[in-house]
Structure formats: structure tokens, C-alpha cells
Amino acid sequence: MTTAPEPAFLEPWHAQLFALTVHLNDSGRLDWGDWAARFGATLAVHGLDRDLDGGDDYFNAWLETLEAILADVGAAAPDEAAQLREAWRQAYLNTPHGAPVRLST
């Protein structure tokens, strides 16, 4: 356990995921109490076989929770998410180094 200063987010994807979730809450599409209950439950499951260190493992649990909630409410179905994931993967592979990554469609 350290008391040294840390950046707000250790990885850009942590920041994006955090912002996406807060925005859904700000715009009334996600109740924060429900969110905390579901997220806490995911953390508990992930922490069953090992101690989570509060870094990537914490945000992986966060992402899994958000994906599940969005699938439940029909905002982002799992197969749709999988397609977009693949599209983004291709876009990253096809984009020259240094250029902004964009989806082709």
C-alpha cells in the first residue's frame, strides 16, 4: 500500500469506461444504486479465487458489469458488441502508426 501520488487513471481505457458509465448515469440511463450493487456483486465473484489489486482487474469487473447491464436493457446486445469489437480490432490493425484510428463504416 503506497501513499505516493498517482494519476487519476492508470490506463486510457479505464478513463473511457469510467466516463461512459458516469455519462449514462448523468443522462438518467443508469441508476447509481443499481450500478453499485451489480458492480459489487461482480467484484465479489472475481475476488473468490484471488485477491483483486484494484488495477486492471477492478476495471475488468467494471466492464463486465456494464456490458451485462447494457445487454439486459437491450442497449447493447452481446452479438452487436462482439461485431463492433472485431470492427475496432481491424481498424487498429489497418491504421498506419500515428494516424487516428477510425471505423470504416
Partner: peptide, 26 residues
Amino acid sequence: MRVKALETILTRKGLVDPAALDEIID
């Protein structure tokens, strides 16, 4: 990329405003 996928789906459906996300991060 899993986060990008969610963001893209929600943006296309008009559920998320990318500018608001940048503002929150900032």
C-alpha cells in the same frame, strides 16, 4: 476495444454523446 465497442454502439443509438465523455474525463 471492448470499451470502444460499447461506446460506438451507444453513440450510434444516440444514447451517448462523445463530447460529454471527453468532458467527464477532463
